[in-house]
C-alpha cells in the first residue's frame, strides 16, 4: 500500500518537475554560508533581545517607554523622510532631463553619477565634513556674498546629515527614475498637447502620474536605505539627532548591552522588511535588485 502511494506520487511529480538532481545541490554551498553566517547570527542576536538580562519583553518595554529612544526613532524617520523628499525633488527633473537630452551629454552626466556612486563612502562623507565646517568653503562663500555675517552651523546637526545623505542617495533615485521615464511613450505627451493641455497640465496630469511607479519605488528604496544608515549620520550628525543604526552600535559597543542592542536591531529589521514587503506587493520584484 505504502509502496504504491510512493510510486504514484513519483509518477505525479515526474512530468511536472524535470529535476536534475544536481541543480539544487549546486546552491548548497551558498546556502550553508548564509545559514551559518547570516541567518544564525541574526537569529541569535534577536533571541538575546528577549533573554538578556532576564527573559521577557523588558527590553522592548524600555525601548518603547523611554523618551530618549523614542526621539531616536522619530529622528530616524524624520531624517530618512527629509532625505527622500529632497532626493526626489532634485532627482525627478534630473532623471527627466537625462531621459530626453542628447545621448552624448547624458553619458557625461551618467559618468559623473557613477563616479560619485563608486567613490568610497568615507571619502565622500569626509568631503562634506570639510566643506561644511565653520571655516569651510560654504560658510566662506555665504559670508562672502553677504548672505550671513557669522558662519552657520552646518555640520553635526540635521543640515549636515541631510546634505551628506542626499548626496549619497541621489544616484539611487535618479537611475531607476530615468529607466521609468525613458520607457514612457512620447506620443502620449504629444496626444496630451494635441488635446489642448498646456505644459503644466501635461506635467501634472500626464507625466507625473506615468512616472509615479518609478518615483514611489525609488523613494521607498532610498527611505529604507536611509533608515539603516550608520556612517554618514555618525560623522555629519550631532549627538542631538542620533539615528537608529547609531543607537544599535552604541548599545553594543559602548554599553555592551546585547539585550537592548538586539531589541533595537529587531525594530530596524521589522520596519525594513515591512517596507520591502510593501514594495514587493505594489511594485513587483524587478526593483529589488537595484540597477
Amino acid at each position: 500500500m505504502v509502496a504504491q502511494t510512493e510510486t504514484e506520487s513519483a509518477k505525479h511529480y515526474a512530468p511536472v518537475r524535470a529535476r536534475r538532481p544536481t541543480d539544487f545541490d549546486l546552491t548548497l554551498p551558498a546556502l550553508g554560508l548564509l545559514a551559518l553566517f547570516f541567518v544564525l547570527p541574526v537569529a541569535m542576536l534577536l533571541t538575546r533581545s528577549v533573554t538578556e538580562p532576564v527573559p521577557g519583553l523588558g527590553n522592548y518595554a524600555e525601548l518603547m517607554g523611554s523618551s530618549t529612544y523614542l526621539r531616536v526613532f522619530a529622528n530616524t524617520f524624520m531624517v530618512s523622510g527629509l532625505v527622500t523628499f529632497v532626493s526626489l525633488l532634485i532627482g525627478f527633473p534630473v532623471a527627466w532631463a537625462l531621459a530626453i537630452m542628447p545621448s552624448r551629454l547624458a553619458s557625461v552626466v551618467f559618468a559623473i553619477l557613477l563616479l560619485s556612486m563608486w567613490t568610497n563612502l568615507l571619502a565622500r562623507t569626509y568631503a562634506w565634513m570639510v566643506l561644511l565646517q565653520r571655516t569651510g568653503v560654504i560658510n566662506k562663500m555665504l559670508i562672502g556674498v553677504g548672505l550671513v555675517d557669522k558662519p552657520l552651523p552646518l555640520v553635526n546637526n540635521l543640515t549636515g546629515v541631510t546634505i551628506g545623505m542626499t548626496y549619497i542617495m541621489l544616484p539611487f533615485i535618479i537611475l531607476p527614475l530615468y529607466g521609468v521615464i525613458r520607457k514612457i511613450d512620447p506620443a502620449i505627451l504629444q496626444a496630451a498637447a494635441l488635446c489642448g493641455a498646456n505644459r503644466w497640465q501635461s506635467l501634472v496630469l500626464v507625466l507625473l502620474p506615468l512616472a509615479m511607479p518609478g518615483m514611489a519605488a525609488g523613494a521607498l528604496m532610498v527611505f529604507v536605505m536611509s533608515l539603516g544608515y550608520f556612517v554618514t549620520p555618525a560623522l555629519l550628525g550631532g549627538t542631538a539627532n542620533m539615528m537608529l543604526a547609531e543607537l544599535i552600535a552604541q548599545f553594543v559597543q559602548s554599553l555592551v548591552n546585547w539585550g537592548m542592542g538586539g531589541a533595537a536591531a529587531l525594530v530596524l529589521l521589522v520596519v525594513t522588511l515591512a517596507l520591502y514587503a510593501v514594495q514587493l506587493r505594489f511594485f513587483g520584484t524587478d526593483r529589488l535588485g537595484g540597477s
Partner: peptide, 10 residues
C-alpha cells in the same frame, strides 16, 4: 537589502 548595521552587530 538588510541594514548592514544589523548584520554587523549580529
Amino acid at each position: 537589502i538588510l541594514p548592514v548595521v544589523v548584520l554587523a552587530v549580529a
